[in-house]
Simulated assay, not measured.
Amino acid sequence: MRAVSAAEVAPTSYAWEIRAEGLKVRAGLRRMAVDGLDLSLGTGVHGLLGPNGAGKTTLIRSLATVLRPVGGTLELLGTSLGGATDLRELRRRIGYLPQDFGYYKRFTVREFVEYMAWLKEVPRRDIPAAVQRAVERVGLADRADDRMRTLSGGMVRRAGIAQAIVNDPRILLLDEPTVGLDPAQRLRFRELLHELGTDSCVVVSTHLVEDVAAACTAVVLLAEGKLVFEGTPDELAAAGGPKDVGDSPIERGYSALLARPDQERGAW
């Protein structure tokens, strides 16, 4: 059990957890990494696919309120991200795992997740139970009191997932979460995604198309900062054919859509 905030029990006043119209976000000073994106995401697990440089990480960072849009509109949980928006309450309801995250190597797993819970303003009395639950969900209960510096790369990644879910977020953003996980750990992670997606909006950026096919209820495909496809994994698989590159139907659909000219992509 945990205490919930007034915002969590208030009636929902938004149709989508994430809603973007004409969204533009820069990566660096010049490059428009997300360029005119229209997107509406609700409860469920959304796989974010695209080649290197497609704008996936930039989009994830903007959804995490790390980067501010330079054009268009972005609403998270009904809150519009304007220039003077107070982000503290919103950030309490978001979980975020970046590709590379920092941690104190002398912290134990428990201390690391506790610290992140404190930063997210989880009520002090709820932190021990929230941390224990998060650590158990990622399969690190038996290593909870080991120092972070003693963990393998896959275990560190799982600790990163634990800190992302410790506040029971309404929006969960995971950037390449399966890097370093072995096959068995990836299967357990897919099960966890299914569980989390029942009452949260989960966005998973990945290069592994098979993870999307197995774990996601919807797919968003980006190329050069623009939306190429939005639909179900089955619809993505149907976009390809026997002549397209790939070892599975969903891989062939992925490569087929990326190979099409912009005007044909727009039909999806």
Rank of each mutant, 00 (worst) to 15 (best):
V166A: 02
D100T: 15
G253K: 03
V66F: 14
L174Y: 08
V70S: 09
A144N: 05
L39H: 00
R188K: 11
L227Y: 03
G72V: 04
S248W: 09
L236T: 01
E230Q: 12
E75H: 04
G36L: 05
L81I: 12
W268I: 10
V209Q: 03
L23I: 04
M32S: 10
S5G: 15
A54W: 04
I94T: 04
V135G: 00
G253R: 01
F112Q: 00
P249H: 08
T198W: 12
T57Y: 11
A3R: 12
A259L: 09
G253Y: 04
R143F: 15
G154Q: 04
G225C: 05
G197Q: 01
P233A: 09
E264K: 13
D182A: 08
A144R: 09
R68D: 01
R170A: 07
G241N: 07
G50P: 02
A64C: 11
I171R: 00
A117Y: 03
H194S: 05
H46Q: 02
D142H: 13
P169T: 05
D35G: 03
L81K: 01
V4H: 14
A20Y: 02
G42T: 04
E121M: 12
Q263L: 14
R190F: 15
Q185D: 06
D262C: 15
F107G: 04
L173M: 07
G139I: 02
L119C: 13
Y103A: 11
E8A: 09
G225P: 04
G180E: 06
G28Y: 10
A213M: 10
P177Q: 04
R260H: 09
Y104S: 08
D142L: 11
R157H: 05
T232Y: 05
K226E: 08
S5Y: 14
T43Q: 08
D38P: 00
L187E: 10
E111A: 15
G82Q: 07
G231E: 02
W268F: 15
V131G: 00
W268L: 14
T217I: 13
R265P: 01
I161N: 00
L119I: 13
Q99A: 10
A239Q: 02
R252C: 09
L193W: 13
T58V: 11
E75N: 02
A215V: 11
A144S: 08
V66R: 07
D247A: 13
R190D: 02
K24Y: 12
V34F: 06
L48P: 01
R88Q: 12
V113Y: 10
G153P: 06
V219T: 11
M116H: 07
P183L: 13
G71W: 05
Q99N: 04
S200I: 04
T12Y: 13
S205P: 03
